[in-house]
Amino acid sequence: MSLVIESVAKRFDRFPALKGVSLTAPKGCFMALLGPSGSGKTTLLRILGGLEFADVGHIAFDDLDWLALPARDRRAGFVFQQYALFRHMTVANNIAFGLNVRPRKTRPTRAEISRRVEELLALVQLDGLGKRYPSQLSGGQRQRVALARALAIEPRMLLLDEPFGALDAKVRKDLRHWLRSLHERLGLTTLFVTHDQEEALELADLVAIMNHGQIEQIASPAELRASPATPFVADFLGQGTGGPGIVPIRASSKPYPAPRSEVAHAVR
C-alpha cells in the first residue's frame, strides 16, 4: 500500500524531461522532490496529477493503476505554484468547487457542502473569510485556500508544486511548520516539489534529489546529510548549508554543517 513509480519517462519535443524515474513512497509519507530547475521534478508531479502524460512507465497507488485513471477521477489534490484559484469565485465557492461538480448522485447536499467548507476554512485558519475573493487575500492566505480546495475532494494523495515559491521568507517559514503539522494530523501521502534544499531537508520524511530527468538519490534528510550518494547531491546540498568551499566530498569524514534554517531558528 504505497506509491510505486516505475521507470516513468517523458520528453517534450526533443527535450527529455524524465529519463526513466523509479521511486517508492510509503503510504502517508511526506516526500520532497528536490532539484534544480529543469530537473524534471515538476513534470513528475504533473504526471502524478494527470495533467501531463508519461510516454512510458507505470505508476501504482493503493492497488490502483494510477496512469490509467483520467485526471478527474484520480482525486489527487493538486496545489499549483501560482495557486490557480478561480478568480471569479468567492473563497467558499473555490473550496466547494470539487464537491459542486460531482455528478448529482454522489454530490453532497448544499447544507453538507457548506458545513464542509466551514470545516476546511477552520482547518486552514481562514475562518470568516469565505465571502472574500482571491484578489482580496494575501499570498499566504491564497496558498491556504488552494490547499483547502484540494483537501475538499478528500484526495488520495496531495501534490504540491513549489508550495512556498511565491511567498516571502517570513510567511514561508510559518507556513512550512504549519504544513508539516497539518500533514501529521491528516496522514495523507504528500509529494511536494521544491528547489530549496533547506525546505526539503527540514520538512520531508524522504527527499528525492533529481537532476537532468533522473533521480540521484532518495533518502531521509539525515541520511542525505551524512552520506550523499553522488557528487551532484553533495554539491547541491552544499550550496545552502555553508559558504562556498566547505562542501565536504568525503562523505563520512565530518558531520555536515548545520543547515541555515536551524541557525535561523536559534536566532528567532
Binding site: 485526471a71 489527487a76 484559484l85 478568480r87 468547487f97 459542486n100 484540494a150 475532494i153
Partner: peptide
C-alpha cells in the same frame, strides 16, 4: 484554472461553463 478544475474532478463541460 482549467487544470485545477479538472484535477478537482470537473468534466470538460463543467470546466468550460464554471
Amino acid at each position: 484554472e482549467e487544470e485545477a478544475a479538472v484535477s478537482l474532478g470537473a468534466s470538460g463541460w463543467s470546466t468550460f461553463f464554471r
